[in-house]
Write a protein that binds this DNA or RNA. Structure first.
Lengths: 205, 205, 205, 205
DNA sequence: GATGAATGAGCTTTCATTCAT
DNA sequence: TATGAATGAAAGCTCATTCAT
């Protein structure tokens, strides 16, 4: 956790620091990111950095948590209006909500994506249970599909969920411009195509 | 490219160096891998390293290329006997061949997997077109499926191909023991499940 | 010397600061003690610290002087009732009084002991003449023993006095639990043994 | 242990590094000693330091061990010719030998003396059993005195041994010029006086 | 060509003290 | 006078690469 000195900072400076950190951790892995570049970009003395944060990891963890909270907050709305839909309609809405979140918080997305490429060790340390929970949520949703006769009860839901989360990584990479940043339309079409493939692939009959 | 001095080395030494490098780049990302550990493990002087290679990256690039060639060589056989099958049967065989390759070359696999987690920048530099080419091959195969009336011509083949390659990353992670190393059987079952989902998902009608 | 702002503080706060300082300098050498920990423990702002004291050393010096005064005050009583005894009886009482002081002011003792392990430079700066004066007092006492025919006039009193003060350091270390904190009884027995050895060692005949 | 690169250095440079280290650790405690000053004095790049040693502590440990070995080597001779003497004669010779060693290796002495003023933790880590063994050796010698009827069997040998080792610290301080460096004669007289006091103090009758 | 020592920029972190309000 | 953020020099250490023999 950042020290309270950080929260006592005036908002402009706090923002400057967070922006510099997002920029740094969005474009470098945790280990390659440097405090020196962050303080330089934020235009604060290096000593100040350690007045605000315990360590480089402290700041990183803060960013990750911020990102998760923000995304959770954002997704809550989407999740509520999903209730009525069938299971694939819900997944589609979930993805579209994710896309809107990404549009509004591209750097947060980049930080998270970089974390996904880190040591398993670091991931576990920072994400704790939340890593698995993403896939578990998908599996849960698919199970409801089975109960509603939308999904073949013999389908391997665990594999399907992995396919979804893995393809999501690809989407994020694409979104972040790796290798190329396509337009929103193109993007939403990809989401729909994936959902359609899975819908057909898993549906009863 | 390694310098010609490297190729002048007797085979035993060359192997020792490559083995040490595989070990290092298989267990560390490019940036965290150190030349010191490689030369120590290979039991060669540090100066020699730079007689053989231009730089750390030079060796890394060589490993990546070697790995790709070796895999290509290995897959050629599998590809030939795939001719007769239908498209999903071929994909299944492709994956099973990939699995056998992985079993025989786990460290090569690890190096490649680590590269997938690197900076986009580094990936582009080292993989050049070959990154896309893997996906292109899948797309080509799927296209044949369309022509043979096995696949719905309206299906988004590019998305399907991405789903396949992305899920492959997951399989490799599982294979390499992250997060858990399951038995071969379990493994092949996952492959089959994925193929089945896609088969249903993409098939005409 | 502390600034007058320190003396303007209400007693409770002043005590809090001194306690925090005793704790810190009792458990760390001067150089390893940190102002940050002191202000944190005393629950005062860091800026205030420098309102009260010129520097870390200023506070340290104050503590040392306080400690010496307090000990001197304490010992005065013991010294008075020693008059009637022979010289070794007096030394014994001196030590026992020192032991009681230690029991009542263990942290003061620890601070002093830590100082004894500092750079000679720092010691000289802070202790000035008082270092020697302890030994001089012992020598004075021994001289009286010579005059009273209790001590051999040829004995090297300076060496004897050093032996006493040096052994005292050992006792303090033991007392402070380094390497092991024995019971009071054991402790007093050691004092007696030392006195006995010296008594025999120095006595006439 | 220093790395083998250190031992491969030409003697002049190796000496320069060791001299710089002795100078640094002789005049500063382990924690206050800095690698920067050492490399500056030795006139080597900082990177080289870490080619030669694992860490600051590695070098320090080496110095301590060197010092102990050297002293042990030196003392062996003295110990042998002590056989014939009575117990106090032996202690006297021991001290005189120690003094000669000090004269020839004053900086080694200073390093050791600084270590005695360190954290108990650091001492234990670096000295392991050898710390206690010094006092044990003295006790053993005194015990022989008891067996030979030279020492009162009721004497507290443990206290006597502590007095000896503690006074030794004082002697070393004096020798190293803290507070003042006296002549050799004066010095030897102090040793004799201490031995005499103990001899009388412990002798039977 | 082989060797292994030399190099130095850069890393994260600490902390006494000063500054600005 | 009180406050707590600002500061920057300095610490130990790493490592890819170059240099000298």
């Amino acid at each position: 956790m950042p020290k309270k000195t950080f929260y006592n900072l005036d908002k402009e400076k706090r923002t400057r620091v967070l922006d510099a950190a997002l920029e740094e951790f969005g474009s470098h892995s945790f280990h390659r990111a440097t405090v020196s570049r962050i303080v330089e970009r934020a235009d604060i003395p290096k000593g100040s950095f350690y007045q605000y944060f315990e360590s480089k990891k402290d700041l990183y963890r803060h960013l990750i948590e911020m990102s998760q909270e923000k995304k959770f907050e954002f997704m809550k709305g989407a999740l509520e209006e999903m209730e009525s839909e069938d299971v694939f309609g819900r997944l589609r809405k979930l993805y579209r909500a994710g896309f809107r979140f990404a549009e509004q918080n591209p750097r947060l997305l980049a930080v998270g994506q970089n974390l996904m490429k880190e040591d398993a060790e670091l991931q576990e340390e920072l994400l704790e249970e939340s890593l698995a929970s993403g896939e578990d949520f998908i599996i849960g949703t698919l199970k409801e599909g089975v109960e509603n006769d939308e999904i073949d009860p013999n389908a391997n839901l665990s594999v399907a969920a992995s396919m979804i989360t893995q393809y999501n990584l690809k989407l994020v990479d694409i979104f972040l411009g790796t290798p190329l940043n396509e337009g929103a339309e193109e993007f939403l079409k990809k989401i729909d195509s994936m959902i359609d493939i899975l819908k057909n692939g898993l549906s009863k009959e």
